[in-house]
Write a protein that binds this DNA or RNA. Sequence first.
RNA 1: GGCCUCAUCGUCUAAUGGUUAGGACAUCAGGUUUUCAUCCUGGCAAUAGGGGUUCGAUUCCCCUUGAGGCUACCA
Length: 509
Amino acid sequence: MTETPKKIRTRFAPSPTGYVHIGSVRSALYNYLFARHNDGTFSLRVEDTDRTRLVEDAVDYLLKVFAILGLNPDEGVVLDERGKVSQKGDFGPYIQSERLPIYQKYVQELLDKDYAYYCFCSQERLQLAREERQAKKLPPMYDGHCRHLSKEEVEAKLQAGEPHVIRMRIPQDGFTEFDDLVYGHIKIKNELIDDQVLMKSDGFPTYHLAHVIDDHLMQTSHVIRGEEWLPSAPKHILLFQYFGWEVPAYAHLPLLLNPDKSKLSKRQGDVATGSYLDKGYLPEAILNFLLLLGWNPKTEEEIFSLDEMIARFDLSGVNKYGAVFNVEKLDWINGMYIRKMELGKLVTLCVPYLEQDGLLEKISDAQFRNKLTGENISFEKLQQIVSLEQERMKKLSEVGESVRFVFEEMPQYEKELLAWKKITIEDAQKNLQTIYDEMEKIEIADFTKENLSELINRLKEKTGLGTGELMWPLRVSLSGLKNSPGPFEIAEVLGKEKTLRRISRAIHL
RNA sequence: GGCCUCAUCGUCUAAUGGUUAGGACAUCAGGUUUUCAUCCUGGCAAUAGGGGUUCGAUUCCCCUUGAGGCUACCA
């Protein structure tokens, strides 16, 4: 008789605190990939038990970021067809603040079994006790003050309405151990585990209680979460045992680090996923980068589409040590994706950045207006403009600055820029005149980069001038820049009339 | 302080009880190119230290050192 293999169910359980930490996205990604790879379910549960840190609309924001990234949960808190936050699945509610009666029921069970007890200690007393223990160089754990209150005492205090919490009763001896899918066997002395608060005085559960109850009830098969939870995992194991429940598989993920190797934090850089998106990092590039921070495919491949990630991902490829979040590599990956991208899609993605930089105004999906000159621009023309930069961009936010010269009526630059190596400004202008005269003869319809290239080749032969002697001044006259795309491409995009106007201007500077 | 975890180029990482310790990013040099970018070629660059085990250790064990995490009625 063979058992049906257990359905793989993973979850991502964020707290709605207002922004989406890039490290959370990596955790979510690994959960997502693991579930997908195993034909399982990926769900999202909102952990809003800390009432003091709630931020309005945080869940809505988080789900939108996840939708952009393509990490939509199958179950739990999701965005419905109309883009509204809703819940889906058989194990709801998926928002912890809506599950209070459930936690109360189970914590009562713990109380009944004497695996938990009421604690009436004030915050001040706890603070003092902690300091005292620290002064004696003892671990700053709860001192067990309320551990042995009699039933009567507890009853009396409860009757009197004294504020209280419920703590977990940890065995004084023995060990708690478990096997982590990443870190291997973990074993810890019970005497070193604190009598953790399970239920706070406001009636909300702590993370520890809620995690165990929810992940049991929601049939989570694999808990994949950050390494910061490793030290408290034994408490969770113990709780599962207290309830008599099967312990899920745990996989703790190494932390993402600042350049100085401390835990990735706001102070030392950008940790808000939204700001990477705003800067023009592509969702697929962000995921690809995050994938490689802590996981490797055991081959030398580095660029993976989401489908490839799903096909390849497994927990055995996860590293044990933290990885520095190194933006240079992200830039490279992003550049790779931009270069590979279909031009039309790239244009669509660039439009908001061009609008933001005040270069472009969108009239319809196919019609735009150059805000600097008031001219109309077709989608096709915009494609030509963007293609000038496709190979050169690292992130979308750079597009405006690099193509601004195309939008301008006339680029502004110092005439000295026309000079190149031993070519003086006057030489450059003379060469430009030669080019101008030849270009003028080309029909508007034939004003293509191929024909222009041919033209310059002809001129080189005819005049004996070197490539750079013609190209450098031409490029500067058209772009006004020290570094820019090639002059033929620019000329084609500008068209004959504007090209000639710009050359003429350079000649008469 | 206590507990837990980790340790290969600057960074992300691969590899094996026997390799010239591999790849990528970054960097440097050269080529292509009017410039920058792309692209191509090449260079620099690592097993933290000390003990074991072993014919042989970067790999296995121990210690030291270093780094990080946790140590809340936050998650």
